[in-house]
């Protein structure tokens, strides 16, 4: 196995173009496990840990650009106010050791529907910026990044450079369900984001389909009820039944299967419960903060 160590993004991209068979490694928390289990035997690896461009967090207008190599620990420390939902998701990943090494680029690169940051990234409409030395940069909505489990929209000469994270325009929530209190792959996960400017709701569903799903009907339902009831302006309490209906619609949007971690029936149920709870938490939080500003 060849071990390549670029020190700049352009060098990394050139290497990837020359060696499309090479597998990038960032935190290694997915790749090393695959190697250990003999699921991967890369002919070459490109170590991205010396590429400074991947470590940046940049605020540009209404977006934060998070480098593909930024570990969860930094996200949790630096993005609390701009991306609260992403911080919640980062906090659910593995253990302190994993959060110190694991990255957004790796979570995307693995392209698993159980990647815990992905539902939230879908809910907020984040995009992945990818690049090749030949064709330059392009953006792929995270919603479309996974094509099927473990296969992404990335071309063989491309690397993920950074993720465009729209700054929060309303409350966000992320929750997951697992059979232990830490260090667990999601049985199901759910991300929610309110966009108070656009008067819209975004959702993302993890571990309940071959890709990360969203729940457009559920989003539309909330937006519609909020409009008819004037909630966007009044910040009044959630009308009865909205959360429950939202949960049902999220459950229906999922297309789960039975596997070692859980049953399809449970996954659908859990998503309904999580979605209903998340909607309440998010809206209550919004009401609290508006109260705060008015006072």
């Amino acid at each position: 196995m060849d071990f390549l160590q670029p020190t700049s993004l352009s060098e990394a991209l050139a290497m990837k173009a020359e060696r499309p068979d090479a597998t990038p490694i960032q935190g290694g928390t997915d790749l090393m496990v695959d190697i250990n289990f003999d699921r991967a035997r890369p002919s070459a690896t490109i170590d991205l840990n010396r590429v400074p461009e991947l470590m940046d967090i940049e605020h540009v207008g209404s977006d934060v650009w998070v480098g593909a190599g930024v570990p969860y620990l930094r996200i949790m420390r630096e993005l609390q106010s701009d991306a609260p939902g992403l911080c919640m998701a980062a906090r659910t990943v593995g253990s302190p050791q994993i959060r110190a090494r694991g990255t957004l680029g790796g979570n995307l690169g693995t392209a698993s529907p159980a990647g815990d940051t992905l539902p939230l990234l879908v809910a907020i409409g984040a995009t992945a910026e990818v690049a090749s030395s030949e064709r330059g940069r392009r953006e792929i909505p995270v919603r479309n990044f996974i094509i099927r489990p473990r296969h992404s929209a990335l071309e063989s000469d491309e690397l993920i450079v950074r993720v465009r994270v729209p700054k929060a325009r309303g409350p966000q929530q992320f929750g997951k369900v697992g059979q232990r209190n830490a260090m667990v792959i999601s049985i199901a996960s759910f991300g929610l984001a309110f966009d108070l400017d656009q008067r819209a709701v975004g959702t993302g569903i993890g571990s309940a389909g071959p890709v990360i799903l969203d729940a457009p009907e559920a989003n539309a339902h909330v937006a519609e009820v909020f409009s008819t009831e004037g909630l966007w302006d009044s910040a009044a309490p959630l009308p009865d039944g909205v959360a429950k209906r939202f949960g049902e619609l999220v459950g229906q949007a999922a297309s789960p299967i039975d596997d070692v971690r859980g049953t399809a029936r449970y996954r659908r149920h859990a998503l309904s419960v999580l979605a209903a709870r998340s909607l309440k938490w998010a809206w209550n939080e919004h009401r609290e903060t508006t109260k705060g500003t008015r006072a």
């Binding site: 929750g175 997951k176 697992g178 709870r277 938490w281």
Partner: peptide
């Protein structure tokens, strides 16, 4: 709470 940092309940149920 059950679930811990997974943020699956704030005390409901």
């Amino acid at each position: 709470l059950p679930g811990g940092a997974a943020n699956s309940t704030h005390g409901e149920d």
